[in-house]
Design a protein around this nucleic acid. Sequence first.
RNA 1: GGGCGGUUAGCUCAGUUGGUUAGAGCGCCUGCCUUACAAGCAGGAUGUCCGGGGUUCGAGUCCCUGACCGCCCA
Length: 1067
Amino acid sequence: MPNDLPKAYDPTAIEDHWAEYWVREKLFTQPPPEKDAPKDADSFVILLPPPNVTGRLHMGHMLNQTEMDILTRWQRMRGRKALWLPGTDHAGIATQMMVERQLAEEGKKRQDMGRDAFVKRVWEWKKHYGGAILDQMKRLGASVDWSREYFTMDDKLSVAVRVAFVKLYEQDLIYRGAYIVNWCPRCQTAISDLEVVYDEHQGHLWEIKYPVLNDDRTDSDEFLTIATTRPETMLGDVAVAVHPDDERYTHLHGKRLRLPVVNRIIPIVLDDYVSREFGTGAVKVTPAHDPNDFAIGQRHNLPTINVMDETAKITGEGGRYKGLDRYIARKRIIAELEQEGLLVAVKDHVHNVGHCDRCKTVVEPRLSLQWFIKIQPLADKAIAAVKEGHIKFTPEMYEKTYLNWMENIHDWCISRQLWWGHRIPAWECSKCHKTTVARKDPTQCSHCGAEEITQSTDVLDTWFSSGLLPVSVFGWPNITPENRADFDAFYPTSLLVTGFDILFFWVARMIMLGCWFASDVPTRDGSPVPLIQTAPPVEAPAGDAASAEAPVDETPKPIKVDQRSLAQSVPFREVYIHALVRDANREKMSKTKGNVIDPIEIVKQYGTDAVRFTLASMASPGTDIAFNTERTEGYRAFANKIWNAARFIFMNVDKAAEAGIKVDPAVLGSMPKVSASAPLEERWIVAELQSAVAKVNESLTNYRYDDAANTIYQFFWGSFCDWYLEIVKLRLDFSETADKAATTAALTTLVSVFEAALRLLSPFMPFLTEELWKAVYNGETPAKSIALSRYPQCATAIDKDALNSMDLVQKLIVEIRALRKDSGVEEKALTPVEICTDSIYVALFVQADAIVERLARVSEVKHVAQISLGLAKRHHAAFEVGIPKPQINVAAERERLTKDIAKYEKGIAAADRQLGNEGFLAKAPAHVVEGLKKQHAETTLLLEKAQAALAALPPEETAKVNEGPAAKPAAEQEVETTEEQKSEAVEEQLSEELEVKASEPSEEPANETAEEPASEAASEEAPAASEEKPCEAECEEVSEAANEQTNEAAEEAGEAAKEQTSKTAEE
RNA sequence: GGGCGGUUAGCUCAGUUGGUUAGAGCGCCUGCCUUACAAGCAGGAUGUCCGGGGUUCGAGUCCCUGACCGCCCA
């Protein structure tokens, strides 16, 4: 193993190399399955939400990809056939805009060059600039199968789009009609409801008087006042509506009005839709420019007058306003009304204004001829798929959101007036004016045979093609016996990981289209028989007409063996939805705010692994991530910690090699094993590893990336580095005289635990672990990558005894360290300690003497029946520990103890309350009652110890090691010692005899200078403390014996202690 | 207007089906360059679990209610 690793971990030095290696070696390529190979239940298939070809990687992508990569690497290492499919989306509007902008710089317009040339130009653009985001993905180490990369305009996927359109058309689920759609005047295309984003906007509500006409069509004296937020649309008014029950207007029923500006005569219509409370209770009706008005118009047979063109300029219908922009027209119309005295009021009004998702232009509802999908039948299936549990959402609440949307769904406008995209396969006949929709470009009208047909200029909504991806990437619609291996092996996919922002755009559409089209694909022989009893949709299209007119006596059709159930039709079995990545202040990242964090920049700064780990550790389902680079700094430090642990290990492996000691490589690659007689820390670290492994596997199953990451962090840093590495230093003795077998065993456990921990961490930090894993094997790895090794699994029982025993030892060490600190023992100095413990633990602590000495900087451990008087003491339920005190801050100690006592008393009171409650005893489960009793006993013991310790404290005035100047007032009792005094104190302490007899406390300066009453109190209380001593009578003997025990005996005693602790644990 | 979330330490967040004395990271305070790591080590302080009511032997957790914040849809 190389021990020439640099001292500090430098991610940039290794990451590019491995990222490139993974791609070059095609490590994550999933070969095409064998024809007729059985469906592999163990496959794990995941589709990358295709980023736009125009896209650049942002933090949202990185979160998304990190989550997918962690799961995919994890599943792959667990032995599942993992396939992660990458690709990009042609992104109709976005890409077209990008190229148009480029053209504009050259002073060109797409209209000048014509459709074909423009599309060609977009393809060229795509070739040059498209897919940059996938290169960024490669750099981040995403373990995708690059051999299967797709683009939504690839031939294969375009065929799917075309067939899907034709099928839906044939099933009467696609229609063309003139409806109000959201129109973007800038993009000059219709957009779907979802592509409109609403912004609250401070606008106005104009109140305008429309003159009421007499029967002879002359103006009467009366006016009807309407309220509107878009006065320019009045050019297209065809009526004014009032509520039929609105008494204010009853007398006007049947009257006509003169539309100002235009002077058109329009009726007053009665409609329930009108809200009497809003505005004046009278609304102008403009069917061509408002969806609600459109509905009113339909109900009352009103004409539609389109007053705006595709750029939102006024059309010829607007008379003298023709050619004006909508907002200029608005101003002039208001001015005209004002002049005529018809403007009643202008009120401030806050309302939601729709903007184009792409270009933020205010959307204009506009009547136009578009293609729609009759969505209800598809939605019904998609609802059933989720309700019947074939698709599981995480977090669960998104199921509600999904169903709520799906149950209130509107028909989907799928046509776009763009040039870049999948062209709608529909041809208009100029002779019979009928439409021909065909799989292959027709040469003549399918209705009248005329050759004068022209293809629709519209393209399809981008989401139509991406909604088909789960079926189309695996070959649909060409699922032939020879050509279906992919589909059989990989459909349905296992999981979809995505953001909530495209839940409706994409997830919902995939479910609808996936369920709809996959159910047509026969399952192969031998696959499960379908569960549902409905007829195949091909035979009975669930369109309104079909279902409404279905004969009542229809007997259930026999189920075809090859019919696919809904469970097998879904595009994915699970959906994991992550939240938003925000900045450190929880603000949404946006270019205008300038708070966008570029993942690539941040990766350069901290390394990919650290950024990934940051995202993973914060990815708690359902919570937005406030990305904070401080956190990333912490995880870079974590990577460095592991790096240095590796350096330490490699250094020792090299030393061992010189001494002829080697680790058998055969022990690597699986879960480390230790014998029951192995030293405590070996049994313990393996048990800790097992616990961590179990927890990580469980957490990842539940998408708890945060729990998984934190578990590994705690294990690696907290258990492995802070404790185990420090302890193992005791065993790495390569001298001539050392026990070679013991050293070998220690080294073997060290290396094998480290190697397993690397595998555990690998999905989270693939680069670092790859580098170190290769180093562990010194280049002779059993696989090309750690990503192809096996993920640790916890199959055997966890050694609870080791965990409990080590926990006690750790507590002891922590108490000693705290004592040292409180007593002012210098960091470097060694101190003797006395330990007094229950007999059952003596053997354990004796066994741990060396560990205690090293980790707590102890010169000598003395096991005693009771802590000598005058020592600074700490207590724990299982032990007491004391050290000679060179100085003690009595005030601080008193405060600490008083606080402890209050805490214990509170705990005891709470427990008493519970235990004294018959209801609790009767109803609470036994383990809770037992646990509480045990806790009560322990707390009581701790309380007694603390009270005794408090009573034994010398009075504050006298609590000085050395004779100082006059005692300070109690308030300033902070003990101050000069450096000189400190070192004196240490010397004194070191030269002190360890055995301090209880009867000889005279060395304590406290007693020498104590005031009388306090002194008495102290000397009276001290024996009291020993009366209620926690240690058993035989403790001293045991401890005496223990000190002389041979190793063998110690082991026996250790077994006894183990038994005891295990019982405790079981309880 | 309809729907869905959230409020826990200075900050960012965990806290499983109600069950023992509510946790982590960062930050903060104190002391250490103890040779794997100062991107480090050790010790320490910190909570009205948003307010009110209820259910229960027992509520951060369940129910009702109020306040505030956020998201989605119309």
